[in-house]
Amino acid sequence: MSRSGVARTIDHDEFDPIGTLALVVLYFVVLTVMWLFTYFVEFLGHGPTVVGLLPLG
């Protein structure tokens, strides 16, 4: 596995780390789903919840 001495220079926007992008998008999706689950299912789903003295509901 010898490295070839040939180096290719590319333009700033030609660099295209699509795998990294996919990972970051996946990470964002996981974060969003986890947040929705934590807040709406685990927190709001486990009522009764402490409410303010002037509830609007």
Binding site: W35, Y39, F40, T49, V50, V51, G52, L56, G57
Partner: peptide, 15 residues
């Protein structure tokens, strides 16, 4: 936005 919705829309409060 979700925390604000909980507080303003649902009236969730701290002890």
């Amino acid at each position: 936005v979700t925390v604000t919705y909980g507080s303003v829309g649902l009236g969730i409060d701290m002890i």
